[in-house]
């Protein structure tokens, strides 16, 4: 039997949580002894090659593509883990949730004090994923199994949770590792 597979993605996030994953330093050598990485920006694999044991999701859902990727993660991963505040609360992108989408776009592309946009149009190419009316936390879209809070979660949080799951131990984090910032 091959090694269990791990997939990761960054939805509406800043890649800070992926940076935190890389921040496990040389333990990443131990990690690749334990797992193979599947679809992930770390190895640049774009599509799932098979069933994954663990999916790590950074960022919330701000557009239709985020929702589709999240749904494909739920479909292809046995255990789905939200990594970081944006995935579970919407985070910084969710600051727009109290402002109507039309106003946000008009401020960004037409009315903003530093905008240079002679066409006066809001980008609407079919290639651009449609924005959702607001930013949704991932647990509002699909069922989630574990949450690793933090902005980003410390490398130790991600490491301890992954090792616990891969060695069939309960995921129990000490007080110092549960932080929302």
């Amino acid at each position: 039997m091959g090694k269990p597979k791990v997939a990761t993605t960054s939805l509406c996030g800043c890649f800070g949580c992926h940076m935190s994953l890389l921040d496990i330093d040389d333990r990443i050598l131990k990690l690749i002894e334990l797992v193979d990485f599947d679809k992930s920006p770390i190895d640049d694999i774009k599509e799932f090659s098979g069933r994954c044991a663990i999916g790590l999701v950074e960022g919330g859902c701000c557009n239709e593509e985020n929702v589709k990727v999240l749904q494909s993660f739920r479909k292809n991963c046995d255990i789905l883990i939200l990594v970081g505040e944006c995935a579970m609360t919407g985070g910084i992108p969710a600051m727009r949730n109290t402002i109507p989408l039309k106003e946000c776009l008009e401020e960004a592309y037409i009315n903003g004090p530093t905008v240079h946009n002679p066409s006066g149009k809001i980008p609407n190419d079919p290639e651009i994923p449609l924005l959702l009316n607001k930013v949704y936390p991932c647990q509002d879209v699909v069922k989630i199994d574990y949450y690793l809070p933090g902005c980003p979660p410390p490398a130790d949080t991600i490491w301890q949770a992954l090792v616990a799951l891969l060695t069939d131990e309960p995921v129990e984090l000490p007080y110092e590792l549960i932080k929302y910032d």
Partner: peptide, 13 residues
């Protein structure tokens, strides 16, 4: 030990 609230966020204005 709250990892995430189990209720949906209300995003009030």
């Amino acid at each position: 030990g709250v990892m995430v609230p189990k209720y949906p966020f209300m995003f009030p204005n």
